[in-house]
Design a protein around this nucleic acid. Structure first.
Lengths: 338, 338
DNA sequence: CTGTTAGCGCATTCAA
DNA sequence: TTGAATGCGCTAACAG
């Protein structure tokens, strides 16, 4: 019941040549329906499974792709993996998930090793590996297709998949404006990241469109971490002209803002609305009172993988985002609105 | 710079036979230090990496193992993957992470396909695949070694790695007793899971040792989900002889308990201590006031993988747990202690 | 539509 | 301590 059967066994049982078996295996046309069925029955009976190793060695494609990542948040990575996985499933490909350390001086070599050892047909890069120069260089030097998910910098000649950060920030800002907010604090993200500027741009664009002034005092710097949110909130909330809402560029910073608000005895969202981007995917679990822009992480991963499997060259795909509204955020203390 | 070089190129450059290169590749003894160095230098120069495919085809081991899982919580899975990954790194093996759907009637076939197609040398099973009969059967029928991480049922003849649930529950209960609690509600886990009985047993053992009576009224059934925690808390907290502490068998149920306590205006931990097991690894993020037993998930995965790679037969390894104490839990309202 | 002949890159006999 | 031959299971030309 457990002997490994090979293509020869199948061909013998079906009474055809091994090449014919190979043909039905690869879904080749020019196989009569009759023999095809016979071969398939034989494969079934023997529980035949083609050895990937042999296919790699003999053929040109391995049917395998790799996902390379470095610990982003577990929730985020889970979404990424699932998205890639689903796309692979649909395509009949295998996925090799490979964690790396982008700070390791040998990452480039490691990736090169992975590719030459496993013969993967392509690579999906997830943040922050998307912007790891040694990896990018290694890949480019090897002539292997790769796609980047939400890259932080724009390498024109590589394929990528991303969301429209400017539009998302615009949507969120408009959302707040529509609810009566006129003074909206904005906590900016790390300047290394392309998304930071985009999000700020969207915020400004929404203010503009609504005819509201852009007040530099309402912009705080940040680095996408909890402490940045704390610092920003302290600055905003201890001033006399307190914003009625704070828009943090990601969820970790939003959490920092929330904690300060809480310490100051401010009710959220009654005294202060706090909104953000759900970058690490934890926001909705931990702070249900938060209205967030959901990054379509899983969909991005899926699209990236599909792109890779389809072999499209230097394609950039922009995916839509979601604004996840919490009922609670709408309850704003009217006294605070100016 | 990117041509794939093979063992022949190396042998030519080093001026030795193919076989000798193969020997140094596999760390074989009986190679003179001199030639070994020469070969290694040649490999370096050519950027040579052995093709796994060729090794699989020609040899008997693939140097690959698979981790099979079904969506547990992302945090949990992240720990599992990292643990397996680290062990593989140390061993120079590759890890194939394979999600499956245990409810799919074809899981068995899928796993069989994975094994025969990829030639993996062994399998690590993570909950709930540890108890998926079709998978277990497929594996046993294929004569491939596998190790189970925290299995729910005890298949005597398979290797497994787990924590001591009884001792952990005992520790937690003793911890509460030491802080003055005399009436401790216990929310039991799903009866399908071996850990449920173990944890209850540990709870009872601690009470016994402290000379406290076991009160059946203080035991509530549960199914490891939020709602079970809610139901149990309602029963406990609406009765007249309210427990001063509630010990939930996992964190989802602890969350349910917390939500009820909150709705009833009970301060945690001032009016009620709530403790639990950190099964899904989210507890510490979401409810910092919770004192929990941390499952050594990563360590379990590491140990399981090591076991597999070492080829130990039918070994069972028990790992120690941690009790993660929050300062807050110690502040108990003395009025509530009887 | 189908079969024949070569290898893919390595480990594994055997021999030296 | 080393080398020469053989074949793993499959696909890729080429035939027919």
């Amino acid at each position: 019941m457990s002997e490994r059967s090979n293509i020869k066994d199948v061909s013998a049982l079906a009474g055809v040549s091994i090449k014919t078996v190979s043909r039905v295996l690869n879904g080749h046309r020019y196989v009569s329906t009759d023999t095809k069925e016979r071969v398939e029955k034989a494969m079934q009976e023997l529980g035949f499974r083609p050895s990937v190793a042999a296919r790699i060695l003999a053929g040109t494609k391995s049917g395998q792709i790799a996902l390379i990542y470095d610990n982003h948040s577990p929730y985020y990575m889970n979404q990424i993996q699932m998205g890639c996985w689903e796309a692979c499933q649909q395509n009949g490909s295998r996925l090799l998930a490979q964690p790396v350390d982008v700070a390791d001086p040998l990452v480039g070599e490691q990736v090169r090793g992975l590719v030459t050892e496993t013969h993967v047909d392509g690579i999906v890069l997830s943040s922050p590996v998307t912007d790891c120069v040694p990896v990018l260089k290694a890949l480019e030097g090897m002539d292997i297709p790769f796609v980047r998910i939400s890259p932080g910098t724009n390498h024109a000649m590589t394929s990528s998949v991303f969301m429209d950060d400017a539009q998302a920030a615009d949507d969120m800002t408009s959302y707040l404006i529509a609810r009566g907010h006129r003074h909206i604090g904005f906590v900016k993200g790390h300047s290394n990241h392309m998304a930071s500027e985009e999000r700020l741009f969207g915020y400004r664009r929404a203010l503009d469109r609504a005819g509201l002034p852009f007040e530099p005092a309402l912009i705080a710097p940040g680095e996408f971490d909890f402490d940045s949110g704390v610092a920003a909130a302290q600055r905003f909330l201890k001033g006399k002209r307190r914003p009625t809402a704070i828009f943090a560029s990601n969820d970790d910073m939003a959490a920092g803002v929330l904690s300060v608000a809480h310490d100051m005895g401010l009710g959220v969202p009654d005294d202060l609305s706090v909104v953000g981007f759900d970058d690490t995917m934890v926001a909705r679990m931990v702070w249900p009172q938060l209205t967030t822009i959901r990054q379509p992480t899983r969909e991005l991963a899926h699209a990236a993988t599909q792109l890779l499997l389809e072999g499209a060259q230097a394609t950039h795909r922009r995916l839509p985002h979601d604004l996840i509204e919490r009922a609670s955020v709408a309850r704003i203390n009217p006294d605070l609105l100016s």
